[in-house]
Simulated scan of single mutants.
Amino acid sequence: MKKIMITGALGQIGTELVLKCRSLYGNDNVLATDIREPEPASSLSNGPFEILDVTDRKHMNQLVESFQPDTLMHMAALLSAKAEKNPIFAWDLNMGGLMNALEVAREYDLQFFTPSSIGAFGPSTPKVNTPQVTIQRPTSMYGVNKVAGELLCQYYFEKFNVDTRSVRFPGLISHVKEPGGGTTDYAVDIYFQAVRQGKYTSYIAQDTYMDMMFMDDAIDAIIQLMEADGVKLINRNAYNLSAMSIEPEMVKASIQEYLPDFELSYDVDPQRQAIADSWPNSIDVSCARAEWGFDPKYDLNKMTEVMLEAIKQK
């Protein structure tokens, strides 16, 4: 990668991905795009930015023609909880945007990345140590989008030789962007509320295990995969990724190491709980480790320390 265009640059992953890529490849070599303007004091003001609706393929083509990237990272998507509330819009944005991005990658011979998710799994998927290749029958629109996206990316690789690469992200935890409508977002909001109020009410029930990862590890994984030797990639669309399998009480105990008076209560959201219950408890990441050296640095306690300190500084 030398010159990168990123869609969905103001999203949870996109914001930090842009900053990391600019630090590695140069500010002027990373074009950030989103459907809305960044805030005037945004951290993305250190490099080029363009408004882009990813359902507008003509405009996407124009930006690629102008910027001349060699890599397209397509991060624009509607997350799980919001997608359930508006499934038709979710399909149009998630699948229409992905199709446009893949067509642009094919036409301009771009290396291509888009994230999948553990949401691509469903109730019939093995829940413990979920294999890389297994049954995928999700029961949410977001999950359906992700399975279709994995297949579509593989189709473009096999049919048109587009260098597509992807990962199945677990819940991602970051202090840079606050929650944005995902099922796993309790594991982000709990840290913000721990600092602000000393307590948190979880919409996810006790003993609900889900895979998680600190955002720094997630961003490093994207770049590591994109820089990996394509010949060695067997499961390129998409690799299971995770750093930890946790439930709310584990997060509470970790926070209490630093904030002993922190309190956790529950008011379960049936919709998001149903989505969480359909996902694995833990997934097997051995293929990512073997094929391109995936190796997350943060466990729960190390992540908690960084999260609380960063939020306090805000």
Rank of each mutant, 00 (worst) to 15 (best):
I4A: 00
I4W: 05
M5S: 10
M5E: 14
L10F: 01
V18E: 00
L19W: 01
L19P: 00
L24N: 15
L24C: 04
Y25N: 05
D28N: 11
D28H: 09
D34T: 00
P40C: 14
L44V: 00
P48G: 00
E50A: 11
V54Q: 07
T55F: 11
K58S: 15
H59A: 09
S66A: 14
F67H: 14
P69H: 05
T71C: 08
L72C: 10
L78P: 02
P87E: 10
A90G: 02
D92Q: 13
L98R: 03
E107T: 07
Y108H: 09
D109C: 05
Q111G: 10
F112Q: 08
I118A: 10
K127D: 07
N129I: 11
T134C: 10
R165Q: 15
S166A: 13
V176D: 08
G182H: 15
A194L: 13
Q197A: 14
Y200E: 01
Y203R: 06
M215Q: 12
D216H: 15
I219N: 01
D220F: 10
I222N: 03
Q224L: 14
Q224M: 13
K232A: 12
R236W: 04
A238D: 14
N240W: 11
S242W: 05
V251I: 13
K252T: 02
Y266S: 13
Q271S: 06
Q273A: 12
D277S: 08
E291D: 14
D295T: 05
N301Q: 05
M307L: 07
K314V: 05
